[in-house]
């Protein structure tokens, strides 16, 4: 993958050299043309075409932003209720992610999604202890978002 990105940068530079125009626009055009070449020749590179990875990163970011907006609305809905009616609690969740970086990403994202904050992690057992603002109401949605994020993170990292 590193090889593909490097090669693509070189193609962009060569395109600038050939045109003798040193600006961002020419470089971008060259980079895009290089990307098309690498996509056409992807069979001959080790590993997958790196555009797929970039696409999955974009998907992860989009998913994350949608969940963030939803979670803020939920929290504000709870706060502005005239009578505070929440039942906070801590529950366990198992994760299938293994490496440190994957778990860090999942933790960071769960911290910013509906009614959940990660309290403690046991990486060896793959268990996360999550504090939820309203256990009864949010447990289902937290499990669902966790699964969504896991899928997206695995797609990005592996």
């Amino acid at each position: 993958m590193t090889l593909q990105i490097l090669l693509n940068l070189v193609i962009g530079m060569v395109w600038m050299l050939l045109h003798d125009e040193w600006n961002m626009l020419t470089f971008t055009i060259g980079y895009l043309i290089g990307m098309i070449f690498i996509f056409a020749l992807r069979r001959f590179f080790p590993g997958r075409f790196y555009g797929i990875k970039i696409w999955s990163i974009i998907k992860l970011l989009l998913l994350f932003n949608i969940e963030l907006v939803k979670s803020s609305l939920v929290v504000i809905g709870q706060i502005t209720r005239p009578k505070l009616n929440i039942q906070p609690g801590i529950f366990k969740l198992e994760t299938k992610l293994k490496s440190d970086w994957e778990i860090i990403m999942l933790t960071n994202m769960l911290a910013l999604t509906p009614g959940s904050a990660v309290l403690e992690i046991a990486p060896k057992e793959g268990i996360m202890y999550i504090h939820a603002m309203d256990v009864a109401e949010f447990k289902q949605s937290i499990v669902r978002t966790k699964d969504l994020f896991e899928e997206a993170i695995i797609e990005v990292m592996r």
């Binding site: 906070p88 609690g89 801590i90 202890y129 256990v135």
Partner: peptide, 15 residues
């Protein structure tokens, strides 16, 4: 301590 309205604490024993 967790607030009195809390309903669940699965971490205490494990910790």
């Amino acid at each position: 301590k967790l607030s009195d309205t809390s309903v669940k604490d699965e971490l205490r024993d494990d910790l």
